[in-house]
Amino acid sequence: MEAVVRQRRHRFNFRGSLNIPFVVFMIFFVIVPLFLILFYAFTDAEGHFSLRNWADIFSSAEKWKTIGTTFLVAFATTAICLLIAYPIAYILSNKKFNKNKVLVYVFLLPMWVNFVVRTMALKDMLNVAFVTMFKTQLTASYPLLGTIIGMVYDYLPFAILPLYNQMLKMDKNQIEAAADLGANPVRVFYKVIIPMTVPGIISAATMTFMPTMSSYVIAYHMSNAKIPIIGTLIEFYFNTGTGGYNSGAVLSLVMLIIIGFSLVAEKLSDKKDDSRKAGIW
């Protein structure tokens, strides 16, 4: 008996070993980069400990403005994406309109095209349209609007997909039950359909909010480089010489923290919804 036990203890644990590639990956591509960011954020160009990077960034009104713009763009994009994606997902989830799920692919197809190509094409098309209609380029005259349009266009599929998946799982009986109990279609919508799709709304919001916070290509092209957002700044710092890494790392950390907070906030609201009332947030 004892021999068996001992043998067991010393045996090579094959299942456990399957974790090794994952752990190695996490160490090299998540943990080490994180520590590098931390290191750069709290050191100066010579590698000595310093808080100057932080002071520099947070004492600059311009940087604050950039962070504010980033928030504005991210919130606006998320809200607009949700407003557009919700009815689309609702129609797509209805088997009457979307028999073979072909329509879903039509909406997701843009994701197959290269991101930069897609953005550039959108920019040129909108500019041509604006020149013919308003005699001015969209990206030159309304850079903020251009940025938001670009973000919405690029991230809309990420909002549609989770909502669509959630709506496929919707309990149609509950919708019928609400109508049966005297709720007209409008009431059915906000008393039953919206509460049922809250998890989808939350993940759609996360899926659009997070990438808009960190993207910079879209803002750069769609505003003719006029609207700096955090991503643009980070890119700028990391591409300039001495000391750029340190300031860039600080901004990266700030962004990480913001995204982290938004995730926690969404988790919390999710939990609240499970157990309590019907509100969306």
């Binding site: 009986n173 509950q174 019928e176 039950a177 049966d180 005297g182 049922m196």
Partner: peptide, 21 residues
């Protein structure tokens, strides 16, 4: 007449209770 205008109520096979309430 749509269901919400009928003085008739239904007990569904799978209950169809509102999970969020």
């Amino acid at each position: 007449l749509p269901p919400y205008k009928r003085p008739i109520n239904t007990v569904f096979q799978r209950y169809a209770l509102f999970a969020h309430l």
